[in-house]
Design a binder for these strands. Structure first.
Lengths: 230, 230
DNA sequence: CCGTGTCTGATTGTCAACAATCGATTCTGG
DNA sequence: CCAGAATCGATTGTTGACAATCAGACACGG
């Protein structure tokens, strides 16, 4: 599509997504932004009204998030946002390590992992600019975008699906435990080194750096006697 | 509870599980048994009647399986069982490797990984008996039970949740691609070696053996030019 | 014969009403 | 005063009815 738009009014894409999926995405966004605090109950009537749907489709959408483990359903009591306990956050990082290290391995199996490295490097560059502007939230979001891209570049549907849940939970954890989750120059440097390791075709370094990076992230978010080395 | 039952009619446990969860589990079982072939459409009216529920809760339950990626929802067209293509099965094994290797690492971090090894060894012993009886389905099921226990022993809620989906998909793949997925002595020996590596406190060997074992499983289920080494 | 339009039956999607459940509050009796 | 029972309001869980959509079949015109 190198031409200018032929018409100012493009055809409108038809709705293919189910209402339940749309609702799930919308509520996911609220979870990620911290609009629905951990432990809080989701009232169906109120939420359905806000979203402009009836309770049936809302329940369907929330079943999706329940299955993902982001909501807790208690029969006859209702749906609750999960508590972001330190143990839960640590467990979530265990799962993130599993997924991201596997994704990295798959990228190294591609014909040109250096391309992936270059794409990741662009995010790192943007992260550096953001860090110099002392925009901690921006760095945090770039951090997450880096990991999101990393897994997407692996081209694995399964890993991507699992990772989406884990990134949602990451954002929830940040809001719950450390809203001032800081970004600084060292963050960008770590990411740059990971991206470089793809350019260098060096899977062992990628793996090592990812482990260190994630262990550091956990330690900063949930410090204490739950260190992964225990 | 070392006493004999005080009453012949025990109290009935209250239902804590939501109807949607029960329905999801029931349909999951049907998927795992191959009762619902890949690509087939799930008709709501018929299925609700079979399960003795109305369509509302059925839809809720099926949203769970849809979110897991086991069903495909097409708006206004209905729900379909996913196709078990060779690429999909390979991708699923990528994800399984990620989860199971991470689980193995967590087990090695426990105080007594040799206990885990002993528990896994029991399944291996049962697998050997089953293989000698030339019960291929039994070996296949013991194979899956081994991997299920492996991940459960890691004590990670997240890994276990992800793994449940992957094992469902594994069973679906076996039904679709190779209903005669064979078990024999070499299967038991591979599992025994993995179990032994926990007893030996040897994480590097566990990791290596898991990779080999999974690569072999993929190759047997979807042979050809999609070899993981490509 | 082929392409387009219309109709039909089956299925999905949504809604409002009612049933069921629960926690909090109030009442009652010892 | 305290414990147990009853009540109440809010919320969740389910159902049946109706609306919306789609694929397939059929009719019609060029």
């Amino acid at each position: 599509m190198t031409k200018a738009p032929a018409k100012p009014r493009a055809l409108k894409p038809v709705v293919r997504q189910s209402t339940a999926a749309m609702i799930a995405d919308s509520v996911r966004g609220a979870l990620e932004r911290g609009d629905l605090p951990p432990g809080s109950q989701l009232g169906e009537a109120d939420l359905a009204k806000q979203l402009g749907v009836s309770r049936g489709p809302l329940r369907e959408g929330l079943q999706r998030l329940t299955q993902e483990g982001l909501l807790l359903s208690i029969r006859n009591r209702g749906l609750f946002v999960i508590e972001m306990t330190p143990d839960r956050v640590r467990d979530m990082y265990v799962a993130r390590q599993a997924v991201e290290r596997a994704a990295a391995e798959q990228i190294h199996l591609l014909d040109a992992p250096e391309q992936a490295g270059a794409e990741l490097m662009e995010i790192t560059d943007a992260m550096t600019v953001t860090a110099e502007a002392e925009d901690a939230t921006g760095v945090g979001e770039a951090d997450i975008a880096f990991h999101d891209l990393l897994v997407r570049l692996a081209g694995s549907t399964r890993l991507s699906l699992m990772h989406r849940t884990l990134l949602t939970e990451t954002r929830m954890g940040i809001h719950a435990l450390d809203p001032t989750y800081e970004g600084n120059d060292s963050r960008a440097a770590e990411h740059r080194a990971i991206a470089q390791s793809f350019i260098d075709h060096d899977p062992a370094t990628t793996d090592r750096l990812l482990q260190l990076h994630m262990a550091d992230a956990v330690e900063r978010l949930v410090p204490g006697d739950g260190a992964p080395e225990d």
